[in-house]
Design a binder for these strands. Sequence first.
DNA 1: GCCGTGTTGAGAATGGTTATCATTACTGAT
DNA 2: ATCAGTAATGATAACCATTCTCAACACGGC
Lengths: 134, 134
Amino acid sequence: MAVRRNTWQREAVREALERSEGFISAQALHTELHRTGSPIGLATVYRALADLSTEGEADSLQSPEGEAIYRSCATMDHHHHLICRQCGTTAEIEATEVEAWASRVAAEHGFTEARHVVDIFGLCADCTAAAARA
Amino acid sequence: MAVRRNTWQREAVREALERSEGFISAQALHTELHRTGSPIGLATVYRALADLSTEGEADSLQSPEGEAIYRSCATMDHHHHLICRQCGTTAEIEATEVEAWASRVAAEHGFTEARHVVDIFGLCADCTAAAARA
DNA sequence: GCCGTGTTGAGAATGGTTATCATTACTGAT
DNA sequence: ATCAGTAATGATAACCATTCTCAACACGGC
Ligand SMILES: [Mn+2]
Ligand SMILES: [Mn+2]
Ligand SMILES: [Zn+2]
Ligand SMILES: [Zn+2]
């Protein structure tokens, strides 16, 4: 029995996500899909993104505004993000020192099964320049 | 000219927040206030928490479920949290090395006005012990 | 081609948060 | 203490992201 059927919708979401630059919300991705002619439903975009995230094909995190945002994973390895809060451009960053720090701090306090949230939000070079002009 | 008036509502929120153990949502704090006899309005709780957060008297962060949660700050200094995802117990932690790392990484990528989200979620010593027993 | 059932999507429902706006009540001035 | 000006409050509606519902649909094994 098939546990998962293949539909153009799933593939459309995967491709649209890969095509987009940085982190993007489900709503924004849905808008983008419609803009390029796809009649996909909003609920389906939500479902596909949740699946991609579960399968590890996409990163997801909560924006400071409380919106869930997604990004196609370049690498499956553990990593963190530097995100422009203006345009969404994202850089995947290594954080070796932080990894060590996190596990040390957790251990010092007797915590186990520790996971960390480490992300940096700022204005990218382009958006900084644009802001300076205005 | 008074820029900020003193009301029992603000103080009630501040005190209720200090009284609560770990991070708590605006809704939960409102319920708690009503439970203890305060007729404060929900909107006011939201406003007071937002103010406390702005003034640095309270920390706020997005729970993994996307709810904004708050905690009374023991120290006004910049710090981060080690949070038990089982019981909510929280420890405030210093992250000197991480501060340096964050600003260095942001600068290296041309980012400005960088803010970081650095939190560790795990199981506290007690919850770890409880889990081991079961 | 058929059938069984996983998938879709329009719209309703949910739930957290914010906006309205008439009313209330601080506060500085008189 | 009284008053006036206005910031703060709160019941409620509005907002908005996300999830749910369920009838219609379409994969895919046969
Ligand atoms: Mn890490
Ligand atoms: Mn920091
Ligand atoms: Zn940018
Ligand atoms: Zn615990």
